[in-house]
Design a protein around this nucleic acid. Structure first.
Lengths: 170, 170
DNA sequence: GAAGATTGATGAATCAATCTTT
DNA sequence: AAAGATTGATTCATCAATCTTC
């Protein structure tokens, strides 16, 4: 869908960049470059909105994601390494996320029964309440996607899926 | 398109999360949540690939974006504030990006002729060479989008566009 | 007072190096 | 040696506070 231009349209940095790109390279920016720019910008916009929505719950979006994995887990606890695998982030990031969630009282660190190398993250009752409340708030706000229709959202997720597969395979 | 399962399929964290979500909420995850998760993951994958591609040029992707704005600008120089507006980041981030690019010799800070509050970032000849070479490398690698077809890329960009408009309007 | 840029703080991501435990 | 987690360093994002200049 192409949006109509209005007479009060302000300067569009992306249109300007495209014009100059063509001046230099004599061709349109590639679909890959345009899509990557769009995804980066969308992430930036969404992260800002999600963090604002989660502020009342003493959460950021990355911490919300970590907390939800625990909330939805069978035992309500999980080794930090396994949590990192689910989130697809490095061990250092897990340590940092769990530090923040533990400071907020949403979870606690626990010792593993058999393997003393392993640390478990265990969601607290407060953490469960916060996870449920935050999820309700995010769903009511449609996760910050604003004007996008469900059909467009499904299309985005479906189109991106092969990229995830590609990354997981590597 | 639905991918076929194979007998060697490994545990799928996202499928598992969905199963447990339904256990708790009795309904499918919303299209908004699924799309947001997809966009966040896509950004994470792409940023990693782009930074790897740009490493030989002593660039990160955010620095590449900043350098390209200068490269494609009429004068090859621009006030830091204007650069921040183009990149849609806060003044602090501009300072940090320009610091890095200046250390690498890709640009230099210059005084504004009339307004002594203003600092200009001016691309160097080395910066121009690096910008051109990095752009060629990224185009050859299709900006890291791997298996995604041009049609899918166009669809993603088009579907995301209203979100950008929405954010710019606010 | 407002505009432009900077410094200092925090959060999140990475990597390299380290430490304990297996 | 390998696995699990942590600390320290760097980059990029935000916000709050500051400083100079308009």
């Amino acid at each position: 869908m192409v949006r109509a231009m209005t007479s009060t349209e302000r300067f569009d940095p992306i249109a300007e960049a495209r014009r100059r790109w063509i001046e230099h390279w004599g061709d349109e920016p590639t679909p890959a470059m345009v899509a990557v720019t769009s995804i980066m910008r969308a992430q930036q916009i969404l992260m800002g909105r999600l963090n604002a929505l989660l502020k009342p719950f003493d959460l950021t979006f990355p911490r919300y994601e970590a907390l939800m994995i625990l909330y939805l887990s069978r035992r309500g606890s999980m080794p930090l390494g396994k949590l990192g695998a689910r989130l697809q982030v490095h061990p250092t990031s897990v340590t940092s996320l769990i530090d923040g969630l533990e400071r907020s009282g949403h979870l606690r660190r626990t010792a593993h029964a058999e393997d003393r190398r392993t640390t478990l993250a265990e969601i607290t009752e407060q953490g469960r309440a916060v996870a449920a409340g935050a999820t309700d708030a995010l769903n009511r706000a449609r996760f910050g996607v604003g004007p996008l229709a469900d059909d467009d959202l499904d299309a985005i997720a479906a189109a991106i899926d092969p990229l995830r597969e590609d990354a997981d395979a590597a």
